[in-house]
Amino acid sequence: MLSRIIEELEKARGPLNLDELSRRLGVQRSALDGMIETLVRKGRLREVELGEAPPMCAGCAERSGCPVVGMGKVYEVVRT
């Protein structure tokens, strides 16, 4: 099942969202969350918080007004 997640992502032409992936795999979204977590822990997927600002933004006066906040998360396949 874990390998199917990576296979589906590789197969998809473009990014997927988690709901679409759970439909494709035929598993509940809650079950998929656990699987994604395992793959992140094992370093197969990289978790990127989209609202996360680069370190230099910490000192930026306009940080609070920056348009990218709470945009969700991305789990990216890690290629070795």
């Binding site: 997640i5 992502l9 590789e10 998809a12 990014p15 997927l16 969202n17 988690l18 709901d19 992936l21 994604i36 997927l45 709470g70 945009m71 969700g72 998360k73 991305v74 789990y75 990216e76 396949v77 890690v78 290629r79």
Partner: peptide, 9 residues
């Protein structure tokens, strides 16, 4: 590029 899955808020 690496494929990815996105968690929409």
């Amino acid at each position: 590029t690496s494929p990815f899955v996105m968690e929409l808020p």
